[in-house]
Nucleic acid binder design. Structure first.
Lengths: 127, 127
DNA sequence: TTTTCATCTTGTAATCATTATAATCAAAAT
DNA sequence: ATTTTGATTATAATGATTACAAGATGAAAA
């Protein structure tokens, strides 16, 4: 049932858990090996994965959608300097999914993110 | 020093605190009264406001930037049904700005948002 | 008052990520 | 074998935002 392309895309997502890749990043690596691969295919596949809950979408940079295969509840940190997106463990009961409502509204998705300077870039400043 | 247009834009932001307007929303109302007004002016003004910390940007819908003049620490709730963006009070120490670092990374911005069905839309379903 | 200088505004054009569309393809089902 | 369903592809369209260049403004300096 799952297509060859979709398997490759999912494999890529699994291999690059930390990079929270964009469609472009997936395309530029996979298209080297796969004889033909369309950008649209990746969009379609990721949207299908989204609906099935296999991946989640991160809109943190404002200019693009990043995709995340890590389904554990967590937040993200975007470094203004190096651009990395770093997973942040959270103990927030909302993020954990313990709370289903907030102020009477039904919660279906929880997103939390920080922007700033990451640990490594801070070191570079001092060193 | 502040321009006539910029004052009008800030006035609009203050009058419509709850709607978290887009550039388009600001433009379509203000351009009726102001003889001429450019979309670019609104973008420029809002970016200037952003740098001065007068407003903050909310990228919650994925398709557009919403602007918020409420500088109190708070989160947002996006209703999937009516599209409203609702302010949510938070007691999270990170959102409150009490914590300046997380896992060694320096925090400069904190964003939190929920997606789901708002209180009012839930009522409509039952009623 | 005139000049200067920086800043803001405007309109148009460009960018760029994403989506829509329509044709093609493949695999499964009847 | 033929139909059906869903995936893939290429191209074109969308739409929010930014880039750019020319013109307007307004305060400070001469």
């Amino acid at each position: 049932m799952p297509t060859y392309q979709r398997i490759k895309i999912l494999e890529y997502m699994d291999k690059h858990r930390d990079s929270h890749p964009t469609v472009e990043m997936i395309y530029s690596e996979l298209s080297r090996r796969l004889p033909i691969l369309s950008m649209t295919t990746i969009y379609n596949a990721l949207n299908a994965f989204l609906e099935k809950g296999l991946v989640s979408a991160i809109t943190i940079t404002g200019t693009e959608i990043r995709y995340d295969i890590n389904t554990n509840p967590h937040h993200h940190f975007l470094c203004r300097e190096c651009g990395r997106i770093i997973d942040i463990d959270v103990e927030c009961p909302f993020a954990r999914g313990k709370e289903k409502d907030i102020c009477g509204h039904r919660i279906e998705e929880v997103h939390g993110y920080f922007k700033g300077i990451c640990k490594d870039c801070l070191k570079k400043h001092k060193g």
